[in-house]
């Protein structure tokens, strides 16, 4: 195995194009270093991209764009500004401070863990990811990028460079809620992000609901969203949304929690998320 450090995006793309599948991208390393130590991955080459300053930028004028190397800590302290509470809250629950200061948003997305905290938060903000290669560049919705348990549509020569989020909308609240057994350092048993837009009378006009750890990949529940729109976040619409959400998920028993528990916890979690969104939309 060897390691090289890229000093420009173009150099990184050249390297990826040359080495393809034999190469593993190393950013903050909080996942890759563990996988290496466990011998879960045995790449021939490690491409260290973490020095690419151009991928650390956060843009909030015009569109909201963040470079793939923006750290969880950057997000947790609110670098995206108001309107992205769910992203900040999700990033703040990824491991501890030590993981957050080096772990990157691009890494979290490409690792595509079923339990990835940031993915539901990004999904409710209609995230799109931009991938570059020597062949060019493409931008796809996040929901189409992460397609299965630890599976993305990233081609071996592509580098995820940018994540673009929807613009903040007035009278909107968002939140990320995580179920774990401790106060922190949990791999989500269930992660749920919500973003709700209300009209002046308190009626939900637009909704995004996404969940993690209840299926092979984090996903949005259009059924739940539809059930919430037109309601006021009242018990009835939440109940209907929870019912729809439960139809969209496929939780399993694993070391962290049972499928039964995951199903039990979702309705209450959704209700709590809707309440928080309503409060935040007013504030």
């Amino acid at each position: 195995m060897e390691l090289s450090t890229a000093d420009s995006v173009d150099a990184a793309l050249d390297e990826l194009s040359r080495r393809g599948e034999r190469c593993r991208v190393l950013a903050g390393g909080t996942d890759v270093m563990i996988q290496l130590a466990r011998r879960e991955i045995t790449p021939e080459h490690l491409l260290h991209v973490e020095r690419l300053g151009e991928l650390r930028a956060v843009e909030t004028e015009g569109s909201t764009r963040l470079g793939a190397l923006v750290t969880h800590r950057d997000l947790a302290v609110g670098r995206l500004g108001p309107g992205y509470a769910a992203v900040a809250e999700s990033a703040a629950t990824v491991g501890g401070l030590q993981t957050q200061v080096v772990g990157t948003i691009g890494g979290n997305v490409c690792n595509a863990s079923p339990a990835a905290d940031t993915l539901p938060a990004l999904l409710v903000h209609d995230a799109e990811v931009t991938l570059r290669s020597v062949r060019g560049s493409r931008t796809v919705p996040l929901a189409e990028f992460v397609v299965g348990r630890r599976v993305t549509t990233r081609a071996p020569d592509e580098l995820l460079t940018t994540i673009t989020l929807g613009r903040p909308i007035p009278r909107t609240g968002d939140v990320y809620l995580k179920v774990g057994r401790r106060s922190a350092m949990e791999v989500a048993i269930v992660g749920l992000a919500a973003r709700l837009t209300f009209d002046g009378t308190g009626v939900v006009t637009d909704a995004r609901i996404a969940v993690a750890s209840v299926g092979p990949r984090p996903l949005r529940s259009v059924g739940a969203e539809t059930a919430l729109v037109g309601g006021t976040g009242d018990a009835e619409s939440v109940h209907a949304a929870a019912k729809a959400l439960l139809q969209d998920v496929d939780p399993i028993d694993d070391v962290r929690g049972t499928a039964d528990y995951r199903r039990r916890v979702i309705p209450g979690l959704l209700g709590r998320a809707v309440r928080v969104c309503a409060e935040r939309a007013e504030g």
Binding site: R181, R182, S183, A184, M185, E186, V187, V255, R256
Partner: peptide, 16 residues
């Protein structure tokens, strides 16, 4: 054992 690392064998943290 089902729990095999300190990720799943959860020790109390300062916040707990």
């Amino acid at each position: 054992y089902r729990e095999r690392t300190l990720e799943s064998y959860r020790l109390p943290l300062a916040g707990d």
